[in-house]
Nucleic acid binder design. Structure first.
Length: 208
DNA sequence: TCGCGGATAGACT
DNA sequence: GTCTATCCGCGAG
């Protein structure tokens, strides 16, 4: 399956769920960094109160969501950056946010980028992950995933033992229906999931 | 373990 | 000016 099939032929929630266990890597001048995706969120277009494209909002800041599935959407909030991939055909503003990875490649480089914050704090949040990658600008926004230093390995996937669907983080919209939709997907028991409690962490990190 | 404030990109009132 | 798909360091319980 290529990126186009992966990001355009299924519902955005299905895509977000399927990304768990796939490797996300970023090629830096100093080497490759990345790990396995353990937490994602789906944002499902103009009807989704929590999406940046709600009601058809469109501006230079969220243009990426409107591009064809497989296009990068790098969003800036304060001094932080988020890694999203647009889904569906061009003109349908849906996308998937990668919130957390279990670090595997370039751990020392990521540790340096995070100014020494290691362990679970290394990559257990969307902006932390981008910091670990050394991203400090929206440079790769609007690029196709295939034409960027980012790579998602669609050929291999580590199977999660159990996947949980939960409400999305930080969504404080007035509409409780959308604020509570179970559109966040996590590998149950993985220590890098952003809000996991110590006692919920499993020895095998939730992998089958 | 929790709640608070500060930092401060970018759109909107 | 106000709000947010955040993170961090701090102080209190």
């Amino acid at each position: 399956m290529d990126y186009k099939d992966f990001f355009q032929k299924r519902t955005t929630a299905t895509i977000a769920r399927d990304l768990l266990g796939h490797a996300l890597t970023f090629q830096t001048p100093a080497g490759k960094v990345g790990g396995l995706i353990v937490e994602t969120e789906a944002y499902v277009g103009v009807r989704d109160r929590a999406a940046h494209s709600y009601g058809g909002r469109r501006s230079p800041a969220n243009e990426g969501l409107y591009r064809a599935g497989g296009t990068l959407y790098i969003y800036a909030q304060r001094q932080y950056f988020f890694f999203d991939v647009a889904t569906q055909a061009a003109g349908t503003p849906e996308g998937v946010l990668v919130r957390a990875i279990e670090p595997i490649w370039g751990q020392e480089l990521m540790l340096a980028n995070r100014h020494g914050k290691g362990g679970r704090l290394l990559t257990n949040g969307p902006a932390k992950m981008m910091q670990a990658f050394g991203i400090t600008s929206r440079k790769w926004d609007l690029h196709l995933l295939a034409d960027s230093p980012f790579e998602i390995d669609l050929q291999h996937k580590r199977a999660p033992k159990q996947i949980l669907a939960l409400p999305r983080i930080g969504v404080v919209q007035a509409d409780p229906i959308w604020a509570n939709k179970p559109l966040r997907f996590v590998v149950a028991g993985n220590p890098y999931v952003s809000d996991i409690k110590q006692r919920q962490i499993e020895k095998d990190h939730g992998w089958a």
